[in-house]
Simulated assay, not measured.
Amino acid sequence: MTARRGPGSLGHLSEERERTRRSYDTVAAEYQARLADELTDKPVDRALLAALVELAVPGAPVADLGCGPGHVTDWLAGRGVPAVGIDLSPRMVAVARRAYPGPEFREGDLLRLPAADGEFGAAVALYSVIHLAPDELRPALAEARRALRPDAPLLVAVHLGTEVRHLDEWWGHQVDVDFRFLPAETLLGALDDAGFVVQARLERSSYPHEVETRRLYVLARTPS
């Protein structure tokens, strides 16, 4: 296994990635206060995450890619697996470390993960690839594959569609961030191009407490 890239070594961020990072820095504390318990009311998400844990390569850490304030990472750790949360926003990482001292949290970009080759036995990316530019999706999934062991599962969730939703204000804070909805065929094609084998897909409507969108979950694996 190669030495992992150091924490905070983000390299050069595109203008859009930098805007995303600053926006999530701005809302980090509010995000944690509002959404720390969101999995309590998301039975489908919990079931898929539980399946991911069961399918994970035994003994290897499970990565939460785009972990935000760390609540999903902590949920994974509570299921008996070593969990590592990775997020572009240093303030999100700081919030996560304060709130959840058990898991490990690292600052890093989906395009340049602070992880060794084959370090993780599974990974989840819940609504994190929606902040990537169209030409960044495949490289990000290829980077996820690099960090995963053979026969390791990856669970990805996105909002379905072709819309790009821009926010200038979020929970009373000024931000500058885009949310890119994805057609199913775009995500499936990108996973295939990155070398993943798709095993299952599921669509659901939003819960009453969520932003009203159609959501897609795809469970894929690296080749064995």
Rank of each mutant, 00 (worst) to 15 (best):
95 V>C: 07
4 R>T: 01
101 P>I: 05
195 G>T: 14
139 P>Y: 06
199 Q>P: 00
43 P>V: 12
106 R>H: 07
224 S>I: 05
163 E>L: 01
116 A>P: 00
171 W>G: 07
97 R>C: 11
3 A>Y: 00
32 Q>V: 02
95 V>P: 04
169 E>T: 15
16 E>R: 15
62 V>C: 10
153 P>E: 14
104 E>G: 12
207 Y>G: 01
44 V>D: 13
93 V>C: 13
3 A>M: 01
74 D>M: 02
99 A>G: 14
55 L>G: 03
44 V>L: 15
93 V>G: 13
194 A>R: 01
202 L>Q: 14
140 A>I: 04
42 K>C: 06
124 V>P: 02
187 L>D: 10
120 F>N: 01
144 A>K: 00
217 Y>F: 15
224 S>A: 15
36 A>C: 04
189 G>W: 08
50 A>D: 15
70 G>R: 12
202 L>P: 00
214 R>I: 00
134 P>R: 03
115 A>C: 14
192 D>K: 11
58 P>E: 08
116 A>I: 00
4 R>I: 00
196 F>N: 05
223 P>I: 06
2 T>M: 07
141 L>E: 03
187 L>C: 05
135 D>G: 02
145 R>A: 15
21 R>L: 14
166 H>A: 04
20 T>A: 10
126 L>N: 08
7 P>D: 15
212 E>L: 01
54 E>P: 01
